[in-house]
């Protein structure tokens, strides 16, 4: 029976980077406290994907019903396995799966839950979690209780690259009345591909009104870039989903990311923090976007966009 359980995610036949990160920290904690690590993963690729994972035990669930993520089947299976194998610490990534299952598992197992974790460490006799709250504006330091489910924000620490030879065994999927009707792949048709642009003029809720998008379009033309955006702009129906940068949108790495009226919520940062050069304009000097930007300004974007466009056009023309 393992003390620390990593609920793994597999993509394209391999364990995701986020799961590798969980395995790394699980092993660090386990070594310090003489504990064992298990990884649990779903789907036909699971066995091959976890057989070299840095874990003592690997539990694979292979069944038609788990080929695609299904919240009902995954939860029922995890609850059954974790009830038979009551781990102290259950780690999930703060992905859709983690956000979907984390608290529900904690409730079913009647244990604590810690969300948006960015660090897990041992300090003296305590085990501590650091969590990101208030849209990334604040952090909380929390004591890990005896048993807890923890969801970790992907990219919070580096994966070690260590591998291992876990003992692999199978566990049966448990039934659920929830069904996956169909999988919808990202729509790549028609619109521009923002992941290929060298310069992104990215607008957030600070654009305020769809009419103001014209200013962003003109700026993008003048600067030779493409307009992208944060999620609320898409949800408002002002720009198509293909333009969305972030956790549930695209991950971009342009030569220049010009963030205009974007606060820098963790879900947005996840999609653009590795851009080569980030310039942020936001009237709120405390906006978290300035923590990842290289250059920043507190100007009003509605004034800045036309001014910058004019300056660029003056040079070009």
């Amino acid at each position: 029976m393992a003390d620390i359980v990593v609920v793994g995610e597999i993509q394209n036949g391999v364990v995701t980077d986020a799961t590798q990160e969980l395995l790394t920290r699980a092993r660090d904690l386990a070594t310090a406290r003489s504990r064992s690590v298990a990884v649990l993963a779903f789907g036909k690729d699971a066995e091959a994907a976890v057989k070299t994972a840095d874990a003592d035990e690997a539990v694979v669930v292979v069944d038609q019903a788990v080929e695609e993520y299904n919240p009902g089947v995954y939860e029922a299976t995890l609850v059954t396995w974790l009830t038979e194998n009551p781990a102290l610490l259950i780690l999930l990534s703060n992905t859709t799966m983690g956000m979907d299952l984390g608290a529900a598992l904690a409730a079913r197992l009647q244990i604590a839950m810690i969300a948006y974790c960015t660090d897990l460490r041992i300090e003296g006799s305590s085990e501590l979690a650091t969590c990101q709250i208030y849209g990334g504006k604040l952090a909380a330091e929390v004591e890990l209780p005896d048993r807890a489910v923890v969801t970790v924000i992907p990219g919070s620490w580096a994966a070690s690259g260590r591998s291992g030879i876990p003992m692999v065994h199978r566990f049966n999927a448990q039934p659920s009345p929830i069904s996956v009707v169909k999988v919808i792949e990202p729509d790549a048709s028609g619109d521009v591909d923002i992941t290929r642009a060298d310069i992104l003029v990215s607008v957030g809720r600070g654009i305020q009104d769809p009419d103001n998008l014209e200013l962003a379009d003109e700026l993008a033309q003048a600067i030779g870039g493409v307009v992208s955006c944060s999620r609320p702009v898409v949800d408002a129906g002002w720009l198509p989903r293909s333009r969305q940068v972030g956790k549930s949108g695209q991950t971009v790495k342009p030569k220049l990311y010009l963030a205009l009226g974007i606060s820098g919520a963790p879900e947005h940062l996840q999609g653009m923090k590795d851009a080569e050069l980030i310039v942020a304009v936001n009237s709120d000097e405390n906006a978290p976007i300035f923590d990842v930007a290289h250059y920043g300004a507190t100007a009003d974007i509605l004034d800045l966009m036309p001014a910058l466009t004019e300056k660029l056009n003056g040079r070009n023309g």
Binding site: L138, A140, P288, V292, A293, A299
Partner: peptide, 28 residues
Amino acid sequence: LSVRKIYKPEAAGHAQMWGDDVDEVSEK
């Protein structure tokens, strides 16, 4: 949960700030 403290995270970095003057910022 037992929360030890809430605090403003120290960012790994911070943007070099250019102020709020539209002309100056455009120039920069």
